[in-house]
Amino acid sequence: MTGNPARGEGGRVPGKLIVVEGVDGSGKSTQIRLLEKWLERLGLRVFFTEWNSSEAVREITSGGKKKELLTPTTFSLLHATDFADRYERKIYPLLRANYIVLCDRYIYTAYARDIVRGCQPGWVKKVYSFALKPDTTFYFRVPVETAMNRILTGRSRLKFYEAGMDLNLSSDSYESYRIFQGRIVEQYESMVRRERFTVIDATQNIETQQRLLREKVAPMLTPYLIKKKAGNVEAVEHGR
């Protein structure tokens, strides 16, 4: 696989797929929302989707979480079901229709979490092998402590699976969360080169990070903007 074009089992598509990845509290959701605002202002067709948001699947997953029924395998399969539903009905058809698709978390979240939970890496990758590779994946690198402080501000407790309590890392949920997030970070770091992540230093201020995102995305927009007026191209070049 060379160059940018998104490829997978379905072959090439005209649209662009942009993904943000990183641990909770890395600031990735804020950044992708700001990117969406910018693309919308440029008058482009944008679709945003986030992890674990399929209506058909969410009830099952949240029921399983509430009752603490999930094992690493069922946890993985339900998230794969959620992803497949959004992929089959939204992401893939919209990429075919030349949309810019923005994903808050993508298959790399599954790779990281499922492998940390003890699923076989080869199996997890095969399950998600139908998914097109993104044109760009921004990885928000942040020290675990910083991310934790951001997440825990204004919250009194962590949820069971969120804290990785199913892994029996520690009986203290904060300690468990710290260890769990640390392992997720290790997984992300191991993917940086192989999956060609664009690493964003997420300790920088929000405006700086957003400028970096826009600079990276701008060249992808040329085909969309050819038919639009010159003023737009200028706005793209200046990331406004």
Partner: peptide, 9 residues
């Protein structure tokens, strides 16, 4: 639901 979704479920 799509075929992949149904199979995974």
């Amino acid at each position: 639901l799509g075929n992949k979704t149904m199979t995974l479920m």
